[in-house]
Amino acid sequence: MDKKQGKQSLQRPTYLKVLRKNGLSFLAISPLLLGVVGLVGLFQALVTPKMIAALFRGNAVIDTLIGTLAGGSAAGNPVVSYLLGGELLKQGISLYAVTAFVISWVTLGLSQLPAEVEVFGGRFTLYRNILAFVFTILIATLTALTVQVLA
């Protein structure tokens, strides 16, 4: 029995076999992906760029926090965050806030949290999102400061 098992483990599966196995893994996760896509669509329908722009108050510190939270809650292609960020800058919103908004748009994702917990576990998701949140604010602050010094 042991010999048979040992022989089987030595045999290398074909690419097609591996592909089939992976295809099944993706099929198994499809309800999770569909759920996330549905949530992202719902966020996009409910949260308009105008609503996001209205959140900012004109205070650099508070706006950086708002930018991080707004970017993390919003969903969609990062191009939208650039367009919206450019408009916010024109409206006089600080570079700190806009940078935080652009970063958190990609690194944080409220709508994909349930899927992240399911796949990687609660502890990992908590640590990763706290790190991403803190580093979004840090990187936004450092970037805006450095750009000001270099300008």
Binding site: I29, L32, L42, P114
Partner: peptide
């Protein structure tokens, strides 16, 4: 083989 995220999909639906 087990479908994952069934409950999330159900809640979204």
């Amino acid at each position: 083989f087990v479908f994952r995220g069934k409950y999330l999909l159900l809640i979204v639906l």
